[in-house]
Computed example of a mutant assay.
Amino acid sequence: MRHSAFIFDAYGTLFDVHAAVRRHAGAVGPDGQLLSEIWRAKQLEYSWVRTMMGAFVDFWQLTEQALDHAFERVPSADRAARQDLLDAYWRLDCYPEVPLVLKALKAEGARVAVLSNGSRAMLEAAVKSAGLDLVLDDIFSVDDIGRFKTDPAVYDMATTAWRLYPQAVSFQSSNRWDIAGATKFGFRTVWINRAGQPDEYRDYPPALILPSLDGLVETR
Rank of each mutant, 00 (worst) to 15 (best):
residue 156 D to S: 15
residue 63 T to R: 00
residue 165 Y to D: 12
residue 65 Q to N: 03
residue 56 F to R: 07
residue 48 W to V: 11
residue 118 G to T: 12
residue 173 S to Q: 05
residue 143 D to E: 10
residue 41 A to S: 14
residue 20 A to T: 02
residue 197 Q to Y: 07
residue 76 S to H: 05
residue 54 G to T: 07
residue 38 I to Q: 13
residue 61 Q to C: 00
residue 51 T to W: 11
residue 177 W to T: 09
residue 76 S to V: 10
residue 46 Y to S: 02
residue 36 S to H: 08
residue 5 A to L: 15
residue 81 A to P: 08
residue 166 P to W: 09
residue 141 S to F: 06
residue 184 K to I: 08
residue 102 L to I: 06
residue 55 A to L: 06
residue 8 F to E: 13
residue 91 R to A: 14
residue 94 C to A: 14
residue 120 R to K: 12
residue 122 M to Q: 14
residue 124 E to F: 03
residue 184 K to V: 11
residue 20 A to M: 03
residue 50 R to D: 05
residue 153 A to F: 02
residue 207 A to T: 11
residue 199 D to A: 13
residue 80 A to I: 02
residue 22 R to L: 11
residue 182 A to R: 07
residue 116 S to I: 07
residue 57 V to N: 10
residue 194 R to Q: 03
residue 193 N to I: 04
residue 178 D to P: 04
residue 20 A to E: 01
residue 151 D to A: 13
residue 51 T to E: 13
residue 186 G to H: 04
residue 45 E to C: 01
residue 181 G to C: 10
residue 168 A to M: 11
residue 93 D to K: 10
residue 178 D to M: 05
residue 3 H to N: 09
residue 87 D to P: 06
residue 6 F to P: 04
residue 170 S to V: 14
residue 89 Y to H: 14
residue 18 H to K: 09
residue 47 S to F: 01
residue 155 Y to R: 07
residue 162 W to V: 02
residue 171 F to P: 07
residue 56 F to E: 07
residue 216 L to T: 03
residue 145 I to W: 05
residue 9 D to N: 01
residue 200 E to H: 04
residue 153 A to I: 00
residue 138 D to G: 00
residue 97 E to Q: 08
residue 129 S to L: 04
residue 66 A to P: 01
residue 188 R to K: 13
residue 150 T to A: 07
residue 168 A to H: 15
residue 67 L to G: 04
residue 217 V to M: 05
residue 152 P to R: 11
residue 23 R to L: 08
residue 101 V to F: 00
residue 21 V to Y: 10
residue 39 W to S: 09
residue 218 E to F: 02
residue 115 L to Q: 12
residue 39 W to F: 12
residue 209 I to E: 13
residue 26 G to Q: 05
residue 196 G to R: 02
residue 111 R to M: 12
residue 51 T to D: 15
residue 19 A to G: 14
residue 3 H to R: 14
residue 26 G to A: 05
residue 23 R to G: 06
residue 21 V to M: 14
residue 185 F to Q: 04
residue 111 R to Y: 12
residue 160 T to I: 01
residue 1 M to F: 09
residue 215 G to N: 04
residue 100 L to E: 15
residue 140 F to A: 10
residue 215 G to V: 03
residue 182 A to D: 05
residue 214 D to H: 03
residue 67 L to A: 05
residue 172 Q to S: 10
residue 155 Y to E: 08
residue 103 K to R: 15
residue 158 A to V: 15
residue 110 A to P: 01
residue 31 D to L: 11
residue 49 V to S: 07
residue 158 A to C: 14
residue 142 V to S: 01
residue 136 L to S: 05
residue 125 A to M: 07
residue 204 Y to N: 11
residue 150 T to P: 15
residue 74 V to L: 09
residue 92 L to F: 09
residue 17 V to N: 11
residue 175 N to W: 01
residue 177 W to R: 10
residue 210 L to K: 05
residue 116 S to W: 08
residue 26 G to D: 13
residue 196 G to A: 02
residue 112 V to I: 13
residue 88 A to M: 06
